[in-house]
Write a protein that binds this DNA or RNA. Structure first.
Length: 465
DNA sequence: TCTGGGGTCCTAGGACCC
DNA sequence: TCTGGGGTCCTAGGACCC
C-alpha cells in the first residue's frame, strides 16, 4: 500500500548509467596520455574490434571488423590497440557499481558497463533535504543528482559515464542515448523533463530502440514504422502478433508504463558456457582434450560460485567456418549419473565426449562445453547405485576454489588442462593487470624522466608511468 | 596468417499424463 | 452414432541483449 502511494504521488524515475566506450576508457585510466587519442580493444584471440574510443569511431572503424583488415588504417592513424583484459574491466566495473550503489538502495547491475538505478524515492528525499517543493525537486533535483553521480564516478574510478532518466527502463535507455550523443546534454538527460517528448522520440530511429534488433527493424519499417514515436503509437494487436508479448511490453514501456521491473539481485544462471577459438588450427585429439578440460574447469568454477550443480554436460567442436576447407561440427550431450559440480568428474566425461565426436583429418578452430540443467546444490537427488564419495569431492573443490581465490587464478589446476598448451588464445597487446595483481600495479615515479619497469603483458613504453 | 564469447526470453509442437 | 478437456515437460527455432 505504501509503495503504491509513493508511485502515485511521484512518477517513477529510472536512470540508466552507462559507461562511455567502457573497455577503451578502462585502458585510458592507467594510461592518461591516450586521452583524446583513438583506441580499439580486440576480442579474444585478437580477432576483431569489440570496443572503440570515440576518436576511433570517428576514423570509421566499425564494431566487429576483423583486426587484420584494419592493420593498415591503424598504423597510418596511430590507433592504440589492446587485447581484451577482462580482469581489468571486471575489476573497474565493480568499482563503478560500488560507487553507484551509494546513490540509491535500489539498482540493477545490467551488464559489465551499465546499471539501472531507481530514483523514484530519491526525488522525495531531495525535496526534504533541499527543502524544495515537489515541482522544484523534480525539475532540478534529479538532473543535479545525476550530475553529482557522474562526477563522483569519474573522480573515484576514472571512468566517464552518461546518465539517462525516464519513467521506464526503455525510456531511460533512450534518454541515455541522447545524453551520450548530444553535446549540449553534457552527459545527462532527463526525458521526463523534456518539453517535447514526442519530438525526442521521433528523432530516435526504430533500430535504436532497446529490444528492436535487425529482424524486427525490417519488419517494422515495412509497416511504415521508422522511429520510436511511431512505434509507441502503433497498433498493439499487430505488435503482439508480429513481435509477441515482448514487443507489446516494449510499446507499453515507450508509453511510460513500466513492464520491465528492476532485477535487484541477479538470478542464478540457467546454463554456463565456456568456449574459445584456438590461436591456430588444431588437429590432434590430445590438444582438444586439453582444451575441453580447461573450459570445463572454468565453467565448473562459475557453477560452484553460484551454488549450483549441473545435470548435463555438452561438448562440441568445430572447424573454421570462414575457411574454404572441409567443415565439421558436432556436439554431444552427456547426462551425469548424479548432478555434479566436481571438476575432475566433469573432466573425465568431457574428455570421453570429445573423443567420441572427434574425427581425424579436420583442422579444428574451436571447442567448448556447456553446463545445463542447473539446480541448487542442496536440491540434488541421489542415485542408489552411486558409489562416488561426493562429500570428499565437494570438500576438495571448496579448497581448490579458496586457494585460487587467495593466490590467484589457476594457482591450482588439473594436469589434464595441459602445461603450456600450444592452442592457447592470442593476446598480443594486453595491458597489465593494474588492479588485480600485486606485481603489475602502476608505479608512480617522482623522478623525471621515469625509469622503465618490466611488465609481464604489453611492454609498450606507454605503460611506463 | 588473421573473423569473439556468453547469455536471456518466447512460442509452437510433440509426447505424455490423468 | 457418438470419441474430452486440461495439464506438464521438453525441444527446437527465432528473436534479442551486452
Amino acid at each position: 500500500m505504501a509503495r503504491h502511494n509513493v508511485s502515485r504521488r511521484t512518477p517513477p524515475a529510472v536512470a540508466l548509467v552507462d559507461c562511455n566506450n567502457f573497455y577503451a576508457s578502462c585502458e585510458r585510466v592507467f594510461c592518461p596520455r591516450l586521452e583524446g587519442k583513438p583506441i580499439v580493444v580486440l576480442s579474444n584471440n585478437d580477432g576483431c574490434v569489440i570496443a572503440r574510443s570515440s576518436e576511433a569511431k570517428a576514423l570509421g572503424i566499425q564494431m566487429g571488423t576483423p583486426f587484420f583488415k584494419l592493420r593498415e588504417l591503424i598504423r597510418r592513424s596511430g590507433v592504440s590497440v589492446f587485447s581484451s583484459n577482462y580482469e581489468l574491466y571486471g575489476d573497474l566495473s565493480q568499482r563503478v557499481m560500488a560507487t553507484l550503489a551509494q546513490y540509491t538502495p535500489d539498482m540493477e547491475v545490467y551488464s559489465i558497463d551499465e546499471a539501472f538505478l531507481s530514483l523514484t524515492g530519491i526525488e522525495r528525499s531531495l525535496q526534504c533535504s533541499f527543502h524544495l517543493n515537489r515541482e522544484a525537486a523534480t525539475t532540478t533535483g534529479l538532473e543535479t543528482y545525476a550530475r553529482m553521480i557522474r562526477a563522483r564516478v569519474r573522480q573515484w574510478t576514472g571512468i566517464p559515464v552518461s546518465i539517462g532518466i525516464g519513467e521506464t527502463k526503455t525510456l531511460a535507455k533512450i534518454a541515455n542515448r541522447i545524453a551520450k550523443k548530444n553535446p549540449d546534454a553534457e552527459g545527462v538527460f532527463d526525458l521526463r523533463q523534456s518539453p517535447d517528448r514526442d519530438q525526442v522520440l521521433a528523432g530516435v530511429a526504430v533500430d535504436d530502440v532497446w529490444g528492436v534488433g535487425s529482424r524486427y527493424a525490417i519488419k517494422l519499417k515495412l509497416r511504415g514504422i521508422h522511429n520510436a514515436l511511431q512505434l509507441r503509437d502503433c497498433d498493439e494487436r499487430w505488435i503482439q502478433k508480429e513481435m509477441t508479448i515482448v514487443g507489446l511490453r516494449l510499446v507499453q514501456e515507450l508509453k511510460g508504463i513500466p513492464c520491465l521491473p528492476l532485477e535487484r539481485c541477479p538470478p542464478a544462471k540457467k546454463g554456463i558456457t565456456s568456449s574459445r577459438s584456438f590461436s591456430r588450427p588444431v588437429t590432434e585429439l590430445r590438444d582438444l582434450k586439453e582444451s575441453v578440460s580447461a573450459y570445463v574447469s572454468r565453467a565448473a568454477e562459475k557453477l560452484r560460485k553460484q551454488g549450483s550443480v549441473a545435470k548435463i554436460l555438452t561438448v562440441f567442436l568445430m572447424t573454421n567456418p570462414f575457411k574454404n576447407e572441409p567443415q565439421y561440427y558436432k556436439s554431444l550431450n552427456i547426462v551425469f549419473p548424479v548432478p555434479t559440480a566436481c571438476t575432475s568428474e566433469m573432466i573425465h566425461y568431457a574428455r570421453e565426449g570429445i573423443a567420441k565426436i572427434f574425427r581425424p583429418g579436420y583442422r579444428y578452430k574451436k571447442t567448448g562445453v556447456m553446463l545445463l540443467g542447473l539446480i541448487p546444490n542442496h536440491a540434488v537427488q541421489g542415485n542408489f547405485f552411486d558409489d562416488h564419495d561426493r562429500k570428499r569431492d565437494a570438500a576438495l573443490m571448496r579448497m581448490v576454489d579458496r586457494i585460487n581465490a587467495r593466490m590467484g587464478k589457476g594457482m591450482v589446476h588439473y594436469a589434464a588442462t595441459g602445461i603450456n598448451p600450444n592452442w592457447q588464445m592470442r593476446r598480443e597487446y594486453r595491458s597489465p593487470l593494474f588492479t588485480t595483481d600485486w606485481h603489475q600495479l602502476a608505479h608512480v615515479s617522482a623522478s623525471f624522466p621515469p625509469r622503465p619497469r618490466p611488465t609481464s603483458g604489453n611492454t609498450d613504453p606507454q605503460f611506463l608511468i
